[in-house]
Design a protein around this nucleic acid. Structure first.
Length: 921
RNA sequence: GGGCGAUUAGCUCAGUUGGUUAGAGCGCUUCCUUGACAUGGAAGAGGUCAGAGGUUCGAGUCCUCUAUCGCCCACCA
């Protein structure tokens, strides 16, 4: 065994160790019928991503599980990979193009996609290399990318399968449209942000039958609106987006609203445009909000869309893909939506139809990629019908086939699943899996179907519901050459690509080879555990479950562990925009990977959010160093001869070790990583280092070989227990602690199991007593300011002869660890003078040191102690006198309390006696 | 507007099915270069467990309400 330097240097150890593990193929798992598989699904990180604390926590947990199960001899597989992150990646590449002064349209689709692949060759694996730095023991041979051939095949397969079962349809629908990215966004991709906006009140003149304002919108404007409450000739509505009024096709009021009841069925005139709008009644209108009358813009608002469908209104799309106005009067045609808004306000004012403008707080969806305010917009898109897919996924969770940990997420999941909306899967970008859909121009003539109609589609009635396959729409895995209905050859592929989640929802089985029937798939699927953050329960977890049942008829995993969100010390989510990021790679550089992992894991209870400050990582670093030095001590511990019998300390620490094994195992099984790490920390730092190591310094030569052996066994076993949490330092030390490892890794060592034969409760009790005595003596020494080098005599009063052996046997420990001189065991306290008295578990001890016991100080100490005891005695005494307690509480609890009270009273009596002696003196 | 979580020492957090005197780490005070470790050791101070009610022999733990903070969901234009 080689010498270890006095300090642990993680930087020198980690990278080489990782490479060594990998070179030995230790992360790899292959089909092996003799072994039970244990499989974990990694959330594929975004290919454009860089490692953040969330990844670090997520991967640490997964790696702990994998290493733990691997040591338990399961065939542990962890498949890594990345998803192609359609919008994000396209944005990144477009940005770099922009630096060259080019747009993606300048390159054309083919060349642009080439460009994205180039980018991904160069940078796409960055995050995977960063995951290695965390120590993640993934089977890197199996690294997958959602745009890989195999996974793309899976995407096509499932699209066609869904289509053939009538679960994919094309429809016009209000979707979230990001005008900057120019694509549809799922609701989850457009989180709402509270925004201060303005609520504009606009007065729409009423069309009072014949004459009046019917055709004369110009005239309507020249009249100042009369504020008379009796018979206003306008109806006032409120809106946050005035520009959408150009697409209004109705006004809605509540059917029971007295203010407007008489107007229902009449018409109003849309200012500026002059269109007649029916005034309709619907209960969704909130009478309390605004004026109680609402303008209805079915093509630009989800609620209005529903109204439009229900009341068969016209759908007028007034915006282009990039949010410029269209289908509007010439003065506004082509204006940007916000410019149009400003101009409208001025024009409405001129016409005298603009009412109040209020400050208004509302929630507006923002693009999760570029943070642009999304525009609800009518557009032809492809959808997956979710209800049928959700059914088995709901059942699986309700029946417990799939379990959420912590269980509270079950409710969240079920609530969402039971109200699930159809999934818009088409995206108007170039990077991604292109829809396997072709249009035959010949057949589709007159239908206006297809992508080229987008944007102008609004003038037609929408088809928001599933419908029979369009004629002229060909869904095919391979490019068709002729149209099956008309034989035409003029076919165009749909330009859209699929939502990235449409490939990642297949991840648990597509990565194992599906749709091929591979051996891997048969062996490793279903996987065991999914570890993820709450943020993507809907995005990903729910969809994986649905895909699992749809494609495999089996759940993708049985346990879903939801860990907390990583937050900074003030409770905010860590994010780039807030500038409160702690970079895991910086922490690794500074404190080491083990420290990062240890701290992340101890920073959180099951499923609670994680609050971090940089300070905390020191604890992990210090722990690694402590282990390092304990091992150094053990290795340099000199002993000659064969190990003889184990002494008390040896038996004690071995017994404690069994407890640590049991507790750690239990905690890991329960996903309680915090408890596992804390147990090992307390055991190693306090039991092993603070006590056992100290005790080994004071044993006789004859006992040293046994002590040395015990030290090595305890540390070696501890390294195995701690390995899943702190893989690097444990590997390094284990190599020194274990003999004949011959290049074997601790990763291949077995997970410790508790040995009942080594559980020694007598030794634990005895040690507890010694620790209590030593603690009491140290306490007294400190209180009385005895100099450190003083060696007071310790007199122990032991009336019963059979008890004396204890002190005779362990006197040395007391002398060394408590810093006392002679240990004098005597039957009575006669003849002891000038001493401080302590009572430990009913045993009287006296600490005497000529001339240095300060009587006044000692008296104060004893008085305080007695006062404390009195409190407890009073409380416990009252409880014991209560017949209800003695009758109803379990017998052992009552007995425990009795013993405790007796002990307290005995202590108190002895201290009181001592006090009278002190007072007399 | 619904749903969920949090509130325990100066700070960050544990606290298993209710059961002796509520714990840890950091920070703070005092002392200590003792055969690994000063990234260390010993001792100590510091808590009416957010507040109010209730259930119970017994509540940090269970129930109700209140307050504060945070998260998720929802078509208030």
């Amino acid at each position: 065994m080689t010498e270890l330097p006095p300090q642990y240097n993680p930087q020198a150890v980690e990278e080489p160790r990782y490479q060594w593990w990998e070179a030995q193929g230790l992360f790899q798992a292959d089909v092996d019928a003799k072994r039970t598989p244990y499989t974990i699904v990694i959330p594929p990180p975004n290919v454009t991503g860089i490692l953040h604390m969330g990844h670090a926590l997520n991967n640490t947990i997964q790696d702990i599980l994998i290493r733990y199960r691997r040591m338990q001899r399961l065939n542990a597989l962890w498949i890594p990979g990345t998803d192609h992150a359609g919008i994000a990646t396209q944005n990144v590449v477009e940005k770099s193009l922009a630096k060259e002064g080019k747009k993606r349209q300048d390159l054309g689709r083919e060349a642009f996609i080439q460009r994205v692949w180039q980018w991904r060759e160069q940078y796409g694996n960055t995050i995977l290399y960063q995951l290695r730095r965390l120590g993640s023991s993934c089977d890197w041979r199996r690294t997958r990318f959602t745009m890989d051939e195999g996974l793309s095949e899976a995407v096509l397969e499932v699209f066609i399968k869904l289509y053939n079962e009538g679960l994919i349809y094309r429809g016009h629908y209000i979707i979230n449209w990001c005008p900057r990215c120019q694509t549809a966004l799922a609701d989850e991709e457009a989180p709402r942000q509270t925004t201060m906006g303005k609520l504009y009140h606009i007065r729409y003149p009423l069309d009072l039958g014949q004459g009046a304002g019917a055709k004369g919108r110009g005239k309507a404007g020249t009249r100042a609106p009369r504020p008379t409450p009796h018979a206003p000739d306008f109806i006032e509505v409120a809106t946050t987006r005035p520009e959408t009024m150009l697409g209004d096709t109705a006004i809605a009021v509540h059917p029971k609203d007295k203010r407007y009841k008489h107007l229902i069925g009449k018409q109003a005139i849309l200012p500026i445009v002059g269109r007649k709008l029916p005034i309709i009644a619907d209960e969704v209108v909130d009478r309390e909000f605004g004026t109680g009358a609402v303008k209805v813009t079915p093509a630009h608002d989800p609620a209005d869309f529903q109204l439009g469908k229900k009341h068969k209104l016209e759908f007028i799309n007034v915006m282009t893909d990039d949010a410029h106005m269209t289908n509007v009067p010439p003065a506004y045609q082509g204006l940007d939506r916000l410019d149009c808004r400003s101009k409208l306000i001025i024009d409405l004012e001129k016409e005298g139809v603009l009412g109040a403008i209020d400050e208004h707080q509302h929630n507006v969806g923002h693009c999760y990629r570029c943070n642009t305010a999304v525009e609800p917009r009518l557009s032809p898109q492809w959808f997956v019908k979710m209800k049928p897919l959700a059914e088995p996924a709901i059942k699986a969770v309700k029946s417990g086939t799939i379990e959420f940990i912590p269980s509270r997420w079950t409710k969240v999941y079920l609530n969402w699943m039971e109200n699930i909306q159809d999934w818009c899967i088409s995206r108007q970008i170039w990077w991604g899996h292109r829809l396997p859909v072709w249009y035959c121009d010949n057949c589709s003539q007159g239908q206006g179907a297809g992508a080229k109609g987008r944007g102008k589609a609004g003038t037609r009635a929408p088809r928001p519901t599933p419908h029979a396959p369009d004629s002229g729409v060909i869904v095919s895995k391979t490019p068709p050459t002729t149209c099956p209905s008309c034989g035409g050859t003029d076919l165009r592929q749909d330009p859209d690509v699929l939502d990235t989640w449409f490939s990642s929802w297949l991840w648990p089985f597509s990565t194992l080879g599906w749709p091929e029937k591979t051996k891997d798939l048969a062996y490793f699927y279903p996987t065991n555990t999914l570890v993820t953050a709450q943020e993507i329960i809907f995005f990903w977890v729910a969809r994986m479950i649905m895909a699992g049942y749809f494609c495999m008829k089996k759940p993708p995993f049985s346990k879903v562990y939801i860990h907390g969100t990583v937050r900074d010390i003030t409770g905010k989510k860590m994010s780039k925009s807030l500038g409160n990021i702690i970079d895991p790679l910086e922490i690794i550089k500074e404190h080491g990977t083990d420290a990062l992992r240890y701290t992340l894991v101890t920073a959180t209870a099951i499923g609670q959010d994680v609050f971090l400050s940089e300070e905390r990582f020191k604890a992990g670093q210090f722990f690694a160093n402590k282990l390092w030095n304990a091992t150094r001590y053990a290795l340099s511990y000199e002993a000659s001869g064969k190990p003889g019998e184990l002494n008390l300390a040896d038996r004690w620490i071995l017994s404690r070790l069994q407890g640590a094994i049991t507790e750690t195992t239990k905690a890991l099984d329960a996903f309680d990583f915090n408890a596992a790490a804390s147990t090992l920390y307390a055991f190693l730092w306090h039991d092993v280092c603070d006590w056992y190591v100290e005790l080994t310094k004071h044993v006789e030569a004859s006992q040293r070989p046994a002590a040395r052996q015990t030290l090595l066994v305890v540390l070696e076993t501890s390294m195995r227990l701690l390995h899943p949490v702190m893989p690097f330092v444990t590997e390094e030390l284990w190599q020194h602690l274990k003999e004949n490892t011959a290049g074997i890794s601790v990763m291949k060592a077995s997970w410790p199991t508790a040995d009942k034969k080594l559980v020694d409760s007598a030794a634990e009790k005895t040690m507890e007593r010694l620790q209590a005595i030593i603690g009491a003596v140290r306490n007294t020494r400190a209180t009385l300011n005895l100099p450190p080098n003083s060696r007071p005599r310790l007199s122990v009063v032991v009336p019963h002869a059979k008890d004396r052996g204890f002190f005779q046997e362990h006197g040395t420990f007391l002398q060394r660890l408590a810093g006392v001189g002679d240990v004098d065991v005597r039957p009575s306290r006669n003849g002891i003078t000038g001493a401080a008295k302590l009572v430990v578990d009913g045993t009287e001890l006296f600490l005497s040191y000529e001339g240095l016991i300060d009587v006044a100080k000692e008296r104060g100490r004893v008085e305080q102690k007695i006062a404390e005891l009195d409190q407890h005695i009073a409380r416990q005494g009252a409880q014991l006198k209560n017949p209800q307690f003695t009758d109803r509480a379990p017998a052992d609890v009552v007995q425990q309390l009795r013993d405790s009270l007796a002990k307290l009273q005995e202590e108190r009596a002895k201290l009181a006696e001592h006090l009278t002696v002190l007072r007399a003196g």
